[in-house]
Amino acid sequence: MSTNGETIIEVEHLVRKFGDRAVLDGISFNVHRGETLVIMGGSGCGKSTLLRHMIGSMKPTSGSVKLFGEEITAMKEREVERVRLRFGMLFQSGALLASLTVGENVALPLLQHTAKSPEEIEQIVKQKLEMVGLTGFEDLTPDEISGGMKKRVGLARALALDPELLFSDEPTSGLDPIMTAVVDELTLKLTHGSHMTAVVVSHDMTSAFRIATRMIMLGHGSIVAEGTPDEMQNSPNPEVQQFIHGRPDGPIPLNLSQEEHKDHQQVRPRPFLGGRFRFHHKRS
């Protein structure tokens, strides 16, 4: 099993609060080399926040995140950049630079961080685009391609520097079933063949069970369940069963996040016509 490999990510007692509300409340887990960890959970359960802490773009309230054995929560921006060269990230929307073409987007990390010649870079860009099934799309701009294509270009860009670790935020949402299978296969090939480690946030249960070597389910800011895909399938936990089978009824409260939002963000109803009106009203 790949779980014996070197530890790539170590998250310990991670807590992140927005105001009084703990979005992440003491999360701990490890990811080893060659593993594919799928993080799942309902909308607003803190998956994206967790991911942002792992890539070092958010600082935790307390707790630690170690990538490749280095503590990134205490690092300065310059040091974080050095660690970031070792991983790639696929954003939910693809996050392509709209001012550049598809080819330039994929070439960007290579241009910025390597001393490769333009011909070599062109070769790599072609190869990466081919991997995601977009041969010949180099000269189009992101406006001219569909959402699913953008996401695949985003994946090609994340893989441009041959990272040891790949973070994906919903890699398959918005893709058709065939493309989903292609992207999953690519992830499997990279994790098995090139010993890449992948951390995937996903709602897509078919894809999640296809690629995962281990799964984590988040809920109310902590880990509800953790295990291999088989263990999750057979989990006695009713929340896990409800989530992976997509049932509307079950122990997961649907309106929880909204209520919490009201309680803790303290959104006051706006006075009609604004405060000024009330002020005048009181005086008269």
Binding site: I55, S57, E77, E81, R82, R84, L85, M89, F91, Q92, S93, A95, L96, L97, A98, S99, L108, P109, Q112, H113, G154, R157
Partner: peptide, 21 residues
């Protein structure tokens, strides 16, 4: 407007993650 749009569409964050300041 251009930089603001890049910020809200995660492009700025994507740059940071690619270690581009």
């Amino acid at each position: 407007a251009e930089l603001g749009t890049m910020k809200v569409s995660e492009e700025i964050e994507a740059l940071q993650v690619m270690a581009i300041n």
